[in-house]
C-alpha cells in the first residue's frame, strides 16, 4: 500500500513538473512581460536594465529553475492587469469554482447512479428507455445552450431563481462559501445543474452499461444460484463490481468540471477561476493564465491520486504485495 502510494506520488510530481514547464514556456514566450510592465515611451536601455534585473537574460534552464523556485514558494508573480499578487487573486476565486464543481458532480452522482442502476437492471422498461433518450439529449446539447435556456426559463419568465453571481457569501478563514446562505444556495442551483448535466448523463450511461455487463458474469449467476436475495445480488455483488470504472470516470469528470467550469461561469457570471481566466485571456495577463493552468493541473493530479487509492481500497486484486506475501 505504501509502496503503491509512493509510486503514485512520484508520478504525480512528474506530471506537475511537465505542466509547470508548459506554464513557464507560456510565461516566457507569450507576450513580452517588459512591455506589459513599462510604458511605451520607456527607452531601450531602461528596458534592458529591467530585463537584466528580472533575470530574463539568464540561460533558459536557469530561468525555469527560478520559476519553479518561485512557484514552490507560492510566488506566482503579479497580474499584468491589476498589479495584484496572482496567488491572492486566484485564492479568492478558488472556493467559488470548487463549490460549483463539487455540487455539480454530487448532483450528477446522486442522480446518475440510481438512474443507471435502474436502467441496467430493467433495460426493457419504458422508464429506462426514457432515461436513455433523455441522456442522449443531455450528451449532445452544448453547455452554454442549456445554461441560456435555463436562464431564460427561471430568470425573466418564472422569476424563481437568480441567474447570475454567487449570492451572499460567508467567510470562514480564507474560504468563502455560498452554501450557508439562502441566496447563495439558490444561486448555485442553475449553474450546478447546467455544469453537472453532461456528467449526469455520462455517469448514468456508464453505470447502465457496466451493470448490464456485470449481470451477465458467472459470479452473479452463481450468487443467484446460492439463493441470495435480489437486493444482495444487485447491489452487494453487481453494483460494487461496477464501481472501479465508475469511480474513475467520476474522478476524471470532477477534474474536467473544474477545468471546464469556464463556460458555465461565463454564462452565469459565476465569480470563479474560470471567469478570471477568461478575463486574463482578454488582457493577455500571462501570470494569471499560467498560474490558472498550474492550479487546474494540481487539482487534476490530486483527484487522480485519490481515485487510484480508491481502486486499491475497492479491488483486492490490485493489492498485489499482499497476494505475494500470502504465496499467491
Amino acid at each position: 500500500m505504501i509502496a503503491f502510494a509512493v509510486r503514485r506520488f512520484i508520478q504525480a510530481i512528474v506530471v506537475l513538473l511537465a505542466v509547470s514547464l508548459i506554464a513557464f514556456v507560456m510565461f516566457k514566450y507569450v507576450g513580452d512581460p517588459i512591455s506589459q510592465m513599462v510604458g511605451p515611451e520607456t527607452p531601450i536601455d531602461q528596458r534592458e536594465a529591467l530585463r537584466e534585473q528580472l533575470g530574463l537574460n539568464d540561460p533558459v534552464p536557469l530561468q525555469f529553475m527560478h520559476y519553479l523556485g518561485d512557484v514552490v514558494q507560492g510566488n506566482f508573480g503579479r497580474s499584468f492587469r491589476t498589479g495584484l499578487a496572482v496567488d491572492r487573486v486566484l485564492l479568492e476565486r478558488i472556493p467559488a469554482t470548487l463549490e460549483l464543481a463539487i455540487v455539480a458532480v454530487l448532483y450528477a452522482v446522486v442522480a446518475g447512479i440510481p438512474m443507471g442502476v435502474y436502467s441496467g437492471l430493467y433495460p426493457d422498461r419504458w422508464l429506462s428507455k426514457f432515461f436513455q433518450t433523455v441522456s442522449l439529449i443531455g450528451i449532445s446539447l452544448p453547455t452554454f445552450f442549456v445554461g441560456v435556456i435555463l436562464i431564460y426559463i427561471f430568470g425573466p419568465t418564472l422569476n424563481l431563481l437568480p441567474t447570475f453571481g454567487r449570492g451572499e457569501v460567508v467567510h470562514i478563514g480564507f474560504w468563502s462559501t455560498g452554501l450557508l446562505t439562502v441566496s447563495g444556495l439558490k444561486s448555485i442551483i442553475l449553474p450546478a445543474f447546467t455544469l453537472g448535466m453532461f456528467q449526469l448523463t455520462l455517469i448514468m450511461r456508464l453505470v447502465r452499461s457496466e451493470m448490464l455487463e456485470v449481470l451477465r458474469t458467472d459470479y452473479i449467476k452463481f450468487a443467484r444460484a446460492r439463493g441470495l436475495s435480489n437486493r444482495a445480488v444487485n447491489f452487494g455483488h453487481a453494483l460494487k463490481n461496477t464501481l472501479v470504472p465508475v469511480i474513475t470516470v467520476i474522478g476524471l469528470q470532477l477534474g474536467q468540471v473544474i477545468a471546464f467550469a469556464i463556460i458555465t461561469e461565463a454564462v452565469f457570471q459565476w465569480p470563479g477561476m474560470g471567469l478570471l481566466f477568461l478575463q486574463a485571456i482578454q488582457f493577455a495577463d500571462v501570470p494569471v493564465m499560467s498560474t490558472y493552468l498550474l492550479v487546474v493541473a494540481v487539482f487534476f493530479v490530486a483527484i487522480n491520486l485519490v481515485v487510484d487509492l480508491l481502486y486499491y481500497v475497492i479491488d483486492p486484486r490490485l493489492r498485489l504485495d499482499r497476494a505475494v506475501a500470502q504465496g499467491g
Binding site: D218, F222, R224, R226, G227, N230, N241, P316
Partner: peptide
C-alpha cells in the same frame, strides 16, 4: 422468483464450469 430463490442453495445447490469466474473477486 422469491419462492424459487429460497429453494436455490437450500434445496438445490449448483457448481458451474469455471471456478475462476464463479466467485465475486471483490469479497473474501
Amino acid at each position: 422468483y422469491e419462492q424459487m430463490r429460497r429453494i436455490r442453495g437450500r434445496d438445490i445447490g449448483a457448481v458451474f464450469q469455471d471456478p475462476l469466474t464463479s466467485l465475486n473477486p471483490l469479497y473474501t
